[in-house]
Design a protein around this nucleic acid. Structure first.
Lengths: 243, 243
DNA sequence: TTTGATAAGTGTAAAAATTACATTTAAAAT
DNA sequence: ATTTTAAATGTAATTTTTACACTTATCAAA
């Protein structure tokens, strides 16, 4: 059998894959943030300030380097724009149409990130001419970036309903209203307040603090935090998050 | 603003991305088939017959070429092994650890395919020393292929429960039992026969034929086909498949 | 022709989950 | 004291899911 193998099969394994084509590998990030004042879910876009397509909006991106894997590249790209690290990110998928990038054959891997919107470094964001956009007001983006955004929204809707990742978009302490408005923004439908509270309380993964948020009303509303320890414990015992 | 841009940003756009690293891009396929006799879900693996790692099991793979996108590359790789085309395939994700392939920096995109197991070209399969393995008996695979397989099983479990892709694994005509055993194999749990039938009938997307399959019992059991037209019609009207 | 064997086919009741819906309460401002 | 504002809270109806067992059609063997 071995003697029948074409020589390049052996070359492939031992010396590399010289006969194959290479391509550039990019990473593009859909960065989600939740604006607590407007109660709107937003994404952070950068404006190209060089030709061609100067002035057009784009996802923040970068190229995969020799010495990093894709998760690392995505984290690096996010850091470059926001100054944030240790952020929840998830790979969405690969976009590989031949001419998606007119400059050169590049396949791009889309990632989405969930950040607490007030944490980002405003200077770095300004430096990239970046801006937050409501989901309903996303402009036309370069290349196939609108497809990536749509894919990210879909994935977020699914993921947020089966894993407690919504908290990544909120500050450490939040009110029940914040949480509900967040899920309404993600799922793009209104939720019943009493049923929502009931469901969240039944999950039993929040800690109700003694503290109140007095911003929104005279009465004030109690603040909560996500009890990650408890969630992990429960999950280990077979509990599944579901909203 | 333009004048402040570093020169390579302009070069990038106009001439390509010379300063960036390139990599090989591979595609690996998790090929699922459902064995109606054994009532087992299986995947098709190929055996490396060249050094190094000769004799080890692997997913069928190939490299992305200049003139094709990843979906096309995946379809080509599937065709090379099975002789099948126009097959349901879905991208799973990218595997990009730096040293995942010892021969050269290669990122691989995993795809899974669902085929009617009796359709494949046995000669082509034999030619690649390929073999079907039960999900519970997957051997150790090269590189990160075991991770890919696990990821595929998870994705299939999710996808098959929210989209009618199970039929891709069955022949044109199948019995209610076939369908139930298939879902049991995918979901890896037993289902109640009466509840299952009730649920499937409620979906109202199958056509019950006058024909019976007499293989399995004296009485014989009615054959069904998936009514794709009807499903697409219903989906357009807001119906969502759910098992 | 009767009997036995085999898997197919079928319904109902209990439990759980989801939905719809309106009033009272706390606190600040006037 | 009165007004204003959003927070907090429970119940009943509906829908969905689950558990569960006997009859039927057909062939093969006695």
């Amino acid at each position: 059998m071995l003697s029948e193998q074409p020589i390049q099969s052996i070359r492939k394994t031992i010396q590399g894959y010289e006969k194959e084509d290479k391509a550039y590998i990019a990473v593009d990030c859909i960065i989600f943030g939740f604006d607590l004042n407007e109660e709107e879910l937003k994404i952070l876009l950068v404006q190209r300030d060089f030709e061609p397509q100067k002035g057009e909006w784009s996802l923040m991106g970068g190229f995969l380097k020799k010495d990093e894997n894709l998760d690392e590249a995505a984290a690096r790209v996010l850091y470059q724009l926001t100054g944030l690290y240790d952020i929840y990110m998830e790979q969405l998928g690969v976009f590989s149409e031949i001419d998606r990038d007119p400059a050169d054959r590049t396949v791009s891997i889309a990632y989405y990130a969930l950040i607490n919107i007030i944490d980002h470094n405003q200077e770095m964001v300004d430096h990239h001419s970046a801006q937050w956009f409501n989901l309903s007001e996303i402009p036309r983006l370069i290349f196939d970036h609108n497809k990536m955004v749509n894919s990210a929204i879909q994935r977020l809707q699914y993921k947020a309903s089966v894993q407690p990742i919504g908290f990544e978009l909120l500050p450490e302490k939040f009110t029940m209203r914040h949480l509900q408005k967040l899920y309404e923004a993600i799922l793009q439908r209104e939720l019943d307040k009493r049923n929502f509270t009931k469901k969240i309380n039944a999950l039993d993964i929040l800690i109700k603090l003694d503290e109140k948020d007095k911003e929104s009303s005279k009465k004030g509303s109690f603040l909560y935090t996500f009890d990650k320890e408890k969630y992990l414990q429960k999950r280990a015992e077979g509990f599944v998050f579901k909203i």
